[in-house]
Design a binder for these strands. Structure first.
Lengths: 237, 237
DNA sequence: GAGTGGTCTAGACCACCAT
DNA sequence: TGGTGGTCTAGACCACTCT
């Protein structure tokens, strides 16, 4: 099977919630009802419900049932590992990408550290994102050329992840991210439509493949008024 | 049982990883070995491993095993639902909390919306956090007084969560958060040691109990140079 | 008491990795 | 080929909520 049973049950229920077929503040069918409905074991149903739980679609209440949460109040989580192209598709805004720089060179001391490499080449890709006619984001990607070979400027103009996951068949698995605020350099001020701002919100990400290979380090700098990060978190003891 | 078996196995392995007893870039014992070690079924072991996976401690590799990831590279996630007091304890820094305002009043139209209330009272608590001798954070909490009764200024000076979870016995379950950058008002500039900054990083959170009751809306405003948010994210298809 | 979710167990088959 | 994790099933007992 390409996608597992519990994955497809998760998607099925999630879509119903998103479409409003199952309204917020109502309860899902009980686990035993879902077993019959999807002809699955309880464990399989529970795995699907766990995904809904982790992603903030439902809240389970002992002795009562699975309550559907308001999802439209909060527009969609930017947390998680998403490429800019995927993000764009959920935003429905006018976005243009300019590839400002595309180079390949032997790894520098700093990138040895950031990418955990010993030797080899690094691609550096600088892209400027124009949203609604304003240049508001600079993305700088550093990629390990041994892991991601054959990258071209055309891939950068389209989507790095489409090349990595589609063409190369690699699987992006997880990322560590850090958000800080940094002063804008003179060059950055020239590249972006900055108005009077002197600061940029910088999202640094380290992205890993399924086999835990670190292949990408990214700094995404956003004009402060155009930055927004949404998160859903559960308390774990 | 107070804590479940898989929870305690999770904590046991997590502590070993954090202590360095199980070094990064080595593999955990296999699931069947762990079954014997902890005298548990495979499902129980897998639940414990799932928690390690979700929290970024390990990466599972089909046919190979569970690889321990570098956790010290990234200092601890501020994502998740944590009270400021808990956060402080992980930071080991000098922190002083000043309760600047503590009032109770009938719900306003804006808080009706933010807290989803029809009627009743709201506590408003404004606290200033002084770190290493500098006032750098303003936390403004709005709490539904019907859900959290009997709050006092003393609780605010200590820890709201300690009162809510300890004294009242309620369970904080999940939160929706949003991070944006906002201009600092004149009042905020006076309350904080702002230097030349005109902007504040604002973390808005909506916090819910186990039964999905929204009880708190918080705006936490940070001086830009003192703000840092760390996140771990897995790609979910 | 009946129904709900939470935990734990045991067994089975598969896909993937190493050798 | 033998070991690893990924999925699925079936059955059991418990704690909690509602009426």
């Amino acid at each position: 099977m390409r996608t597992s049973k519990y994955q497809s049950i998760f998607q099925h229920i999630r879509d119903k919630i998103l479409n409003g077929d199952i309204p917020a503040n109502t309860y899902l069918p009980s686990e035993s009802e879902l077993q019959q409905q999807f002809n699955a074991s309880r464990d399989t149903i529970r795995k699907a419900l766990d995904l809904l739980l982790q992603n903030g679609y439902i809240q389970k209440e002992k002795g009562k049932g699975s309550l559907v949460l308001d999802t439209d109040k909060i527009s969609f989580p930017i947390s998680g590992v998403m490429s800019f192209k995927e993000l764009k598709e959920t935003m429905h805004e006018d976005v243009i990408t300019h590839v400002h720089k595309f180079v390949k060179y032997p790894v520098t001391p700093r990138m040895k550290k950031e990418l955990g490499m010993d030797e080899g080449d690094v691609y550096e890709v600088v892209r400027i994102r124009e949203i609604d006619g304003k240049k508001v984001i600079i993305d700088t990607d550093y990629l390990n050329a041994q892991v991601i070979p054959g990258l071209t400027k055309e891939h950068a103009a389209n989507s790095l992840y489409e090349y990595i996951e589609g063409t190369l068949g690699l699987k992006v698995s997880f990322a560590k991210k850090e958000i800080v605020v940094v002063p804008a350099s003179e060059e950055e001020k020239e590249l972006l439509d900055m108005y009077e701002y002197d600061l940029l919100v910088c999202v640094k990400s380290y992205t890993y493949l399924e086999d835990a290979t670190l292949f990408q380090y990214t700094e995404s700098k956003h004009r402060p008024d155009k930055f927004r990060f949404v998160d859903f978190a559960r308390r774990t003891v």
